[in-house]
């Protein structure tokens, strides 16, 4: 069931996920009527709106329209504190210490930036960021993914977080702490719970689908939604994911389609990365609990002997016989 709508206010609205805005893409502000119609659509369908901003100030009438409805703002970091934003996106690793306190913060990092993520920055985020979402960008070609290094860095970060818990703080880092609290899938929901309205007035499965192919729309603000084969965006129709307990995985449908040509099928690399996060979260939870009674209502994460659930596909069939 649809619950959220992302509205991209400009073609250069910041990415907050794996996809990147094509370099040649020029600024194109969403038409005021399309914006108003999008807001109206959200009100009628009872959807929570997430507005995604470019790095320039919007015209007054656009801001007035945005403020006509309860919403969440996602804004790029532009060198100074955005007081009124719910989510701040850093499109590269901050070169200086963080100036202020931040709400939910997204670090979009290249694999290399992730591997080089420094301890001083972790300490900064522990002090100043309510919640940190780390998103790896530019992961194409996939061969660039060094999963061993990814695993090593996760372990290193896990040690930092464990230490912080010992200090009595409870930092939230999506890739390491989310799984500790989850008992079911918490995926991105594109095409299922969330859709995107692009600056051209058309709906898309998610912003990445828009930037990849503008002809790939699923309706528009005037005619309404037309999601073909919508069941394919649901967890129950994802043969690998529905058996999986890497609940923190974004299950990025755009990456799925790029790597396997099917929105409901993740690549081997995506599964392994998610399971490395899961397994590191498992160890982290065990380690934190050595220091005290931490979230007693949550079970330990069980030990598993695979990193890609795909290898269990014959077992799933057998279980049904």
């Amino acid at each position: 069931m649809l619950q959220y709508i992302i509205i991209l206010l400009d073609d250069t609205a910041t990415s907050f996920c794996h996809y990147s805005i094509p370099h040649h893409r020029a600024s194109k502000l969403i038409d005021l009527d399309d914006l108003k119609n999008g807001i109206r659509f959200a009100m009628i369908e009872n959807l929570m709106i997430q507005f995604v901003y470019p790095n320039y100030e919007l015209p007054t009438r656009h801001i007035e329209a945005i403020n006509s409805i309860d919403h969440i703002d996602i804004k790029p970091y532009i060198g100074e504190r955005e007081d009124n934003s719910d989510v701040i996106v850093f499109n590269k690793i901050p070169s200086n210490l963080l100036k202020d306190k931040y709400p939910t913060t997204i670090f979009r990092l290249t694999p290399q930036e992730f591997f080089d993520f420094p301890y001083y920055l972790a300490k900064e985020t522990f002090k100043k960021v309510e919640r940190l979402n780390i998103v790896i960008k530019d992961i194409d070609p996939i061969q660039a993914w060094d999963l061993n290094r990814y695993n090593d860095k996760l372990k290193e970060m896990s040690d930092w977080i464990e230490q912080e818990y010992c200090n009595g703080n409870t930092p939230q880092w999506n890739i390491l702490t989310d799984r500790m609290f989850l008992s079911k899938m918490n995926n991105c929901g594109a095409g299922d719970t969330t859709i995107t309205l692009a600056p051209n007035g058309k709906f898309y499965i998610c912003p990445a689908f828009y930037y990849e192919n503008m002809d790939d729309s699923i309706g528009n603000v005037n005619a309404g939604l037309d999601i073909k084969n919508q069941y394919l965006y649901k967890l129950e129709y994802a043969p690998i994911c529905r058996h999986c307990d890497a609940y923190q995985c974004k299950r990025c449908l755009w990456l799925n389609r790029r790597m396997t040509l099917e929105v409901n099928t993740p690549s081997h690399e995506q599964c392994v990365a998610a399971h490395l996060e899961r397994n590191t979260s498992r160890s982290l939870l065990i380690n934190i609990r050595k220091h005290g009674n931490f979230i007693p209502e949550v079970d330990n994460i069980k030990e598993i002997d695979y990193l890609d659930p795909f290898i269990n596909r014959e077992k799933w069939q057998q279980e049904n016989l």
Binding site: P239, S267, H268
Partner: peptide, 15 residues
């Protein structure tokens, strides 16, 4: 490219 085979090898009747 084994990733491109994954959808074929996980297809089932219900899905």
């Amino acid at each position: 490219d084994k990733n491109l085979l994954r959808p074929f090898l996980t297809l089932d009747r219900i899905t």
